[in-house]
Simulated assay, not measured.
Amino acid sequence: MKLKTRLLLMLVMIATVIGSCSKDNYNAEEQAAKDEALIVEFIAKNNIPAVRHSSGLYYQIITPGEGASVTAASTVGVVYTGKLLDGTQFDQATSTVRFPLTGVIPAWTIGVPLIKVGGRIRLISPSTLAYGNQSPGAGIPKNAVLDFTIDLHNAQ
């Protein structure tokens, strides 16, 4: 009986050690500070007249638009390009795509309502307002700061 208990205890200890080795040591505050520094450097290097939103999102209203106003609950039709800060393009819609702003990353839910239909905005998103410490797939690494240019074509 003692041998079985010892073996079981050893197996539990081994599983605990292995499990703790595979965990990501993600610290949201540290990552936010890293993202902020990367964004500030990127904006300065590229002379982007961006404004910092209280959420931590940086944006540049290129064209404010003159059409309907948009809310975070709107369904929008947009054309956009998504890039990493090194200029690598990871996504693009060259014809209008529609989706609810409630179903996208927080940077879009916050940023797109800053313009009206017909407008164009650039969003530079810290990872916490994008995909965080998860990679949504090939092309976007975890903890990535994302740079979007969005043309707002329509909204409901």
Rank of each mutant, 00 (worst) to 15 (best):
S20G: 09
K34H: 10
R52C: 02
V12H: 04
I48W: 01
A15L: 07
V104A: 05
R6L: 15
K116Y: 07
S127F: 05
T75K: 00
R6K: 12
N47M: 04
K45T: 15
L101F: 05
G65H: 04
G119Q: 07
S127H: 12
A73W: 02
V112P: 00
D91Y: 09
S127I: 02
R6H: 10
K4R: 07
K4Q: 11
I150W: 02
L7P: 01
P136C: 03
A44P: 01
V40Y: 08
G119V: 07
I150V: 12
V79L: 11
T88K: 06
T96V: 11
Y131L: 07
S95N: 08
I140R: 05
F99Y: 00
G67F: 10
R120Q: 07
K34N: 08
K23E: 15
L101P: 06
R122W: 09
K2P: 02
T71F: 07
A144S: 12
Q31V: 04
Q134M: 06
Q92S: 08
G137A: 09
I61T: 15
G119W: 01
T5A: 15
S127L: 14
Y26F: 09
G119D: 12
I140H: 03
C21I: 15
M10I: 07
Q134G: 05
P106M: 11
V145G: 03
G65R: 00
T16K: 07
V78R: 03
S95K: 03
D151C: 13
A155Y: 06
R120Y: 06
T75W: 05
D24M: 06
L8T: 11
N133A: 10
G56A: 01
F90D: 14
S55Y: 03
I124G: 00
R52W: 00
Y59N: 01
I140P: 09
A32L: 10
K2R: 14
A138C: 14
V70M: 00
T81E: 13
S125K: 03
T96R: 11
L123I: 00
P64Q: 04
P49R: 14
F99G: 08
T88V: 13
D151N: 08
Y131F: 10
L84M: 12
I140D: 10
V104S: 04
K4P: 00
V40K: 03
A93F: 09
I115P: 00
A50C: 06
A28P: 08
K45L: 07
Q31H: 08
H53A: 06
I110A: 06
E36H: 07
V79T: 15
G132M: 13
G87A: 03
T96K: 05
S95P: 08
L3F: 14
S22E: 07
S54N: 06
P49D: 12
A33C: 04
P136W: 11
E41T: 13
I105S: 11
A130G: 14
G67T: 01
S135I: 02
P64R: 00
F42Y: 13
Q134F: 08
G65I: 06
L57A: 08
I115D: 00
G82F: 10
R98G: 13
I140F: 10
I39K: 00
S69F: 05
G67C: 09
C21E: 14
I62D: 12
G56C: 04
Y26H: 11
T128S: 13
S125D: 08
L146D: 02
